[in-house]
Design a protein around this nucleic acid. Structure first.
Lengths: 201, 201
DNA sequence: TGCAAGTTTGCACTGAATGCAAGTTAAGGT
DNA sequence: ACCTTAACTTGCATTCAGTGCAAACTTGCA
């Protein structure tokens, strides 16, 4: 991936990250209603107006972390061989993304989901993810594949894996130790195979 | 269900419905940014402040339709015999709710989902639905059942059925004819059996 | 009838979100 | 190095969302 890295791009990316980070920092300390966009903008060293040039709300700023994580998984999925069974690819893609940073973020976003105001935006990130995965699936499955099959498959995979992450988070909180990660991978593996082989065991 | 129907309750329910209906009426004609809460409140014959006593936003008001539909399905699910296999119960519950009014609403909410601002709230309705179904499942499945199994199952069922509704809507739009409804039921049936028997056919 | 509890409303206030125009900064050609 | 152009940032002004509060009004009940 030859990043089209002009100076402008770099600045934008840095600003974007600064804003998102500042937002997250506030959320670690306070709830949504206890700080304002002005606070975040100031902390990120940027004007209020610039904040809104990057994100349409504080909620959207936090959701960017989840989006990043999910996009990474999707990139991983796309890089799998095209003839691999798609559920197997999914399993590998999920296992491949396990850097501490990524997963710590994901765990944190699960914690944030407790606030429905933030949860909405997280859900939307997953939804967008679903539609991107559906695109990938459409290209990988035989061309004549039923649209229902594709969409139901993606819905089931994403829905159940999200649930698996939820179970993991409920048990381990923000614990990112190797043991915890191994458990996560096991949960995801089990889930994928349930989807593959059916829930009627 | 002995409705605890005092006069107060009736008034509240009527007001709530009036507000939700007025909101929907505006959305049929205009997009979110083209009218205000004041407009809706006026149309519902209620003050702006009262609108907010019932719903925290226009988006939440529309989402109430989806919530109602999903709650109906859940009630149906709960009324199934406790020893019926749970995926079978799910299939029956989905088929049972097929009044034209309910499904027309559902189709409409799918159309509205195009606006992400509204979509977020719809997603949240589905999410709440998932957690309610998980409660039901926890009571129906053997007590020792793995939490992962429960959550993954519910995630898969809800995720794939939502997808099935999406496919149906994409093909039929707001067509509520018997033929269209038959097709919907077929799509849902196929989806449930995919979840039951696995996507790896 | 009359009191207690539940509801509606208006008012006031904070802060989100967006358009616009003026100021800054980077990119690329000369 | 200089200038032009396009991209980006900022401040300002405006509209409207959302909430707390207190005063009016309804309903439930003794």
């Amino acid at each position: 991936m030859p990043a089209p890295t002009s100076r402008r791009e770099l600045n934008k990316a840095a600003t974007r990250e600064a804003i998102a980070d500042a937002t997250l920092a506030f959320l670690r300390a306070k709830s949504l209603s206890e700080f304002t966009v002005d606070d975040v903008a100031a902390a990120a060293g940027v004007s209020r107006r610039t904040f809104f040039n990057y994100f349409s709300s504080v909620e959207a700023a936090v959701a960017s972390f989840t989006q990043n994580y999910l996009d990474t998984v999707i990139a991983e999925l796309e890089s799998r061989p095209a003839d691999e069974p798609i559920l197997e690819s999914a399993g590998h893609a999920l296992s491949a993304v396990d850097s501490a940073a990524d997963l710590a973020m994901l765990a944190e976003t699960f914690a944030l989901t407790q606030d429905p105001q933030l949860g909405r935006f997280q859900l939307q990130a997953w939804e967008e993810c679903s539609s991107k995965i559906a695109d990938v699936a459409r290209h990988r499955l035989p061309p004549a594949t039923n649209e229902l099959y594709i969409q139901a498959l993606v819905g089931a995979v994403v829905g159940s894996c999200k649930a698996a992450f939820g179970v993991w988070f409920q048990e381990h909180g923000s614990d990112i130790s190797p043991a915890s990660l191994a458990h996560l991978r096991e949960l995801l593996g089990t889930t994928i195979s349930l989807v593959r082989n059916g829930f009627n065991n």
